[in-house]
Design a protein around this nucleic acid. Structure first.
Lengths: 130, 130
DNA sequence: TGGAGTGCTTCGGAATTCGAAGCACTCATC
DNA sequence: GATGAGTGCTTCGAATTCCGAAGCACTCCA
């Protein structure tokens, strides 16, 4: 498998020596596809290939990696029939994600009428404001 | 600069053809350090170098990239004095992250007494359950 | 006139992600 | 009982992303 161990609370995480649980969570969630997988898995148990399709055909190798991480972190588990689900803890996590989803709607709304025109951080005018 | 454009609601996102705002948000937040930056920036405005230190010395190139993305997404902005803050929208986002932080505590607690022993998804027993 | 500190860029190497291909297997259907 | 379709999962080379040290231009203070 690849490198970087599954972030867990209590011990140092990638790029952090503190080991605070928040940072561990932020690291876990801050990996490509992790949030998405939790989201998709939240509504119903899914088999590997179906889950992959739900995630816009993400690469199987990474999906496998993420699923392993989520299992190690006790957010997901495999059912008898081989499909994946969220554990109670995993469902909690997904619920915790609820406000983020709500926020994204406001975000979309806000960007809708706000002028996306401005030279938004592109190679804009003032370079050094010293 | 690097590739992959800043995810924005309304148009297709990396690995998604739907363009639903939720997916855009999940993509934006699912980039390394993004959540962390929002988190650190939430408490007070920070200059580039200080922010970098707060983020466990993350690489400056990526920090620059993330800050640009966050500005484009209207979550962050630069103050007169050159320091970075969250916009109101950005603060909303951070608040939306609150439950995730709470959850991480429960997560830590749960993993504390749960047996971290089991062969958790490692090359465990049954390979193909067909 | 020096440091010391800042925002930010460059760039080569390391790590992660992608995606197509394939393996082993099950479950119909023929 | 061969065939085809579907499944979970691996492998592996290439593309992308990330890292981190170094450096540039500049400001502020002594």
């Amino acid at each position: 498998m690849n490198a970087s161990p599954t972030p867990m609370p209590g011990r140092p995480v990638r790029g952090s020596t503190t080991g605070r649980s928040v940072m561990a969570a932020l690291d876990l969630f801050g990996r490509r596809w992790t949030l998405r997988i939790i989201w998709e898995l939240g509504s119903e148990p899914l088999g590997f290939r179906l889950l992959q399709r739900r995630c816009d055909g993400m690469s199987s190798s990474v999906l496998r990696q993420r699923l392993t991480e989520l299992q190690e972190a006790r957010l997901a588990e495999v059912l008898r029939d081989g499909s994946y689900t969220l554990t109670p803890l995993g469902h909690d996590a997904r619920e915790a994600l609820g406000p983020v989803i709500e926020w994204s709607r406001r975000w979309a709304a806000e960007l809708a009428d706000a002028p996306p025109t401005a030279a938004e951080g592109a190679g804009d005018g003032q370079r050094n404001r010293f």
